[in-house]
Amino acid sequence: MTELHSTSVGPPVAHHFEDFEQEHEANMLGMWAFLATEVLFFGAVFVAFYIYRSAYADIFKEASRHLYMSIGAINTVVLLTSSLTVALAVHAGEHKARRLMVGLMVATLVLGLAFLGFKAFEYYLDYQEHLVPAFNFAWEGANPAQTQLFFVFYFIMTLVHALHMIIGISVLARMIWQARRGSYDQDSTAVELFGLYWHFVDIVWIFLFPTLYLLRQ
């Protein structure tokens, strides 16, 4: 910012910025600030969950055993892999490798859809086992109310996460379209921003997985 001379070559800069660096950094920081907001957004429901988990430890553990850990684990692999592909796509974008970038973005999209597919399948299994609160919840064991509370949080947390996935995938689909036309050849900031968002959604899952699936002992 101390440098006032904007470069005449390089990507176009929005009217209110001095130069590309300033615009790029503002965009990146803006995304980071947004992610800080998201941390607190998810954080609130995590706090609520852990309050009840500490109050009803045994009940929540028992409830956790009714989730499909295998599906959760597979989905973790899927999501971590998609994080890798996004990171590589950002890398490709910075090195102006358009085709590689598009390919990696498509891979990310496919992995994201796969995650949602697995998740939907898991929801279906949960439904069959009468584990969906307010719709068909039925619990043979003790403490149905508290057990239901576990599943309430399970559904709220995973659904809000899935909503973030859906938003990400929608944005990604549009970006792939743009990228094919070369919109990010000069300036791949948008891909970087998307990458940050996608990694964050991944991080949420990194915490959701043990929180919901693994704390069963």
């Binding site: 994080s83 990171a87 964050f200 991944d202 990194i206 915490f207 704390l215």
Partner: peptide
């Protein structure tokens, strides 16, 4: 310790993603 370890591992994973992927 189960909870402690699970959350610690999750934290390490998150830090790796934040530091390197992000």
């Amino acid at each position: 310790f189960n909870e402690l370890i699970a959350l610690a591992i999750a934290a390490v994973k998150a830090v790796l993603v934040i530091l390197f992927f992000m």
